[in-house]
Amino acid sequence: MTTETDNKHLDTILKVGGDPADLPFWNACEDELFLIHQCQRCKRGYWPASRCVDHGNEAMEWVAASGKATLHTYTIIHRTHLASMKDKVPFVVGVVELDEGPFFHTNIVDCSHSMLELGMPLQVKMARHENGLMLPMFMPAN
């Protein structure tokens, strides 16, 4: 069943070149749930939506993840062509390694730039984007 919220999210995802297959993930963010796509045969986690490299599509499901991660790599953006981000520079785009395995691209927030360190523990923090989507951001773990 497609809801109005689904359609609104789908438009936003398509606008940034995202994948409609990830819609269940973005919808769950509305309820502050952070999901990953997981193979129920080998329990390997994936993001974005994937088929399992070993078991294909036979047992892929969206499941709740811990929301815990470590900082794998990052950049601090000082110049941007994106109108929506111009007043936010400099801001941090990081790739975090979720405890369940997959990488996730995100903003690192509530952390001064001088404190950023690869490997530092992080936890998810949901924040409303101006486009209407609830976006998982990551901040230093307590």
Binding site: I13, V16, G17, G18, D19, D22, P48, T73, Y74, T75, I77, T80, H81, L82, S84, M85, K88, F91, V93, V95, H105, T106, N107, H129, N131, L133, L135, M137
Partner: peptide, 18 residues
């Protein structure tokens, strides 16, 4: 680069910075 654009990731400089 798909959904990471939601977080302001755009352009090859940012991706090679990783």
């Amino acid at each position: 680069y798909g959904y990471p654009m939601l977080y302001g990731l755009m352009g090859a400089a940012a991706t090679h910075a990783f």
